[in-house]
């Protein structure tokens, strides 16, 4: 932590801001742990495949499903071996990359596209709004399963196509949420005042509308992370999602399914990874929501006086 805060010694103002930020993070122990977890996951995603790629793919049929917590086969087998005798721990680390690519890619795409369309729909005239909303209805009614089969057939299976499928299916929720909030915010006194004072649309959106809409969107987005990872898992199970040799936590979960009663660790560990990542993202976003809200920040600062 101190390393991080010393990286920019030339800029005292930024440095102070960053220290306060970290101090506030430190006040909320759960959020602090969450941040550490996420840093770890990102690190795994960045360097995991390069470091452990071979270890994670080396099969050993006769040493399959070795139970966890046994150190005799080395650290990589601490969480047990999978159905082809590959070390679970190494596979979980390597899988972090594709998992994060799919989840982050799909959620971010859906969030950006959905929020933008939602802003437009909430802000623009009736006809455009109507058109966008009815498009959202169509997407909402189009089953993701069929979309996956179509994309698979026409474009072929790959991680970017998976992101495309999952992103499209998640657009309506961001779109509808944003629009609903915009409709409400737009009628608020201070926004009306800003309009009267001649503020531009862009300025009103960025200064007044987005800050109100963002917290809800972020809450949904963090939970969507889990949703997307699990949806991807179901699609793999049906044969229309990511398939080996690619690995994601969702795929590992679905591959562990037949072994649920004989080798529980196959589906459990990747499931736990999904749960922990979701939990960390959500706790951190809850913290951030308080930390970034001037009206709420006292909760983190007030405790600082009592703690110190």
């Amino acid at each position: 932590m101190s390393d991080l805060s010393l990286t920019k010694p030339n800029n005292p103002a930024t440095q102070r801001g960053f220290t306060i930020f970290l101090a506030m993070l430190w006040r909320d122990k759960l959020a602090f742990i969450s941040a550490l977890v996420l840093v770890l996951v990102v690190l795994c995603a960045l360097v995991g495949p390069a470091l452990l790629g071979d270890l994670a793919t080396n099969q050993n049929l006769r040493g399959r499903n070795s139970p966890p917590f046994d150190m005799t086969r080395g650290w990589a087998f601490f969480l047990g071996g999978d159905s082809l005798g590959r070390p679970m721990l190494a596979r979980l680390i390597v899988a972090a990359r594709s998992t994060m690519m799919v989840a982050a890619g799909a959620v971010a795409t859906a969030l950006i596209v959905g929020a933008t369309l939602g802003l437009v729909a909430g802000y623009m005239g009736k006809n455009i709004s109507q058109a966008i909303m009815r498009l959202a209805d169509v997407i909402m009614s189009f089953p993701s399963l069929l979309l996956a089969v179509v994309v698979l057939y026409v474009l072929g299976p790959s991680i970017p196509n998976m992101i495309l499928v999952l992103a499209i299916t998640r657009i309506p929720i961001y779109l509808r949420t944003t629009r609903a909030e915009v409709l409400e915010v737009r009628e608020r006194m201070f926004v009306q005042a800003a309009v009267v004072m001649g503020a531009s649309h862009g300025r009103i959106i960025v200064r007044h509308v987005l800050p109100v809409v963002a917290p809800t969107l972020v809450t949904i987005a963090t939970l969507d992370f889990a949703f997307v990872m699990l949806a991807e898992s179901s699609l793999s199970f049906l044969g229309i999602g990511i398939q080996p040799p690619d690995i994601t936590w969702g795929l590992m979960v679905s591959q562990g399914r037949p072994y649920l009663t004989t080798a529980w660790w196959l589906a459990l560990w990747p499931g736990v990874c999904i749960v922990i990542t979701t939990l960390a993202l959500n706790l951190l976003s809850n913290w951030m929501r308080i930390a970034l809200d001037p009206a709420q920040r006292w909760r983190l600062e007030a405790r600082s006086t009592t703690d110190v």
């Binding site: 793919t57 099969q59 049929l61 159905s83 082809l84 089969v149 698979l152 049906l238 044969g239 229309i240 398939q243 080996p244 040799p245 591959q255």
Partner: peptide, 25 residues
Amino acid sequence: TEVGEALVQMLNEVGFNASLRMVEV
């Protein structure tokens, strides 16, 4: 799927340039 993955590894060990493709029915 496991059978497919294992077959591919066995083929590649002797020098094939094999890859697995799992598809639906």
